[in-house]
């Protein structure tokens, strides 16, 4: 028995997901970027602290977290460019392909970053 007349299967459509991923990446960036800078700021207040901080950044967990941040940045940047193109350029078809390409490129950028860190 259901008391809701509508279900929302259209939310699994690729373009809807693309818009939502873009949004969520923005929220997560707003939450984690300040944290990132805060840690950075605290760590470099004195020289000794900087050394221990640099040591700390070598831990795998931090590397993974930084990669996550880069992934979020790439997603949000490419997602934003996608919206700018949609809203400011003449319409082009193949929007689903564009969304997929943007997602793949974001993952690629984060992957390259991770490899460079290792």
């Amino acid at each position: 028995m259901s008391t809701q007349p509508h279900n929302t299967a259209y939310r699994s459509d690729r373009l809807w997901l693309a818009a939502m991923v873009h949004r969520v990446s923005g929220v997560l960036l707003a939450a984690f970027l300040p944290l990132h800078f805060l840690v950075l700021g605290l760590a470099i207040e004195s020289e000794g602290q900087l050394d221990s901080f640099l040591q700390w950044t070598k831990s795998p967990l931090v590397k993974l977290a930084e990669t996550g941040l880069v992934l979020l940045l790439a997603i949000h940047l490419l997602g934003g460019l996608r919206v700018l193109v949609i809203e400011n350029m003449p319409w082009r078809n193949g929007q689903k392909r564009m969304a997929t390409l943007a997602a793949a490129a974001a993952v690629g950028i984060a992957g390259v970053f991770l490899i460079a860190l290792l």
Binding site: Y10, L15, V83, W91
Partner: peptide
Amino acid sequence: CHSHQSCEQLCPQGLNPTASIAGLKR
């Protein structure tokens, strides 16, 4: 409008409200 394009994907007449709304934004 967030340019989700659900409207464009489902319009049975094959219209593109997303593009129309983008035109209005400009």
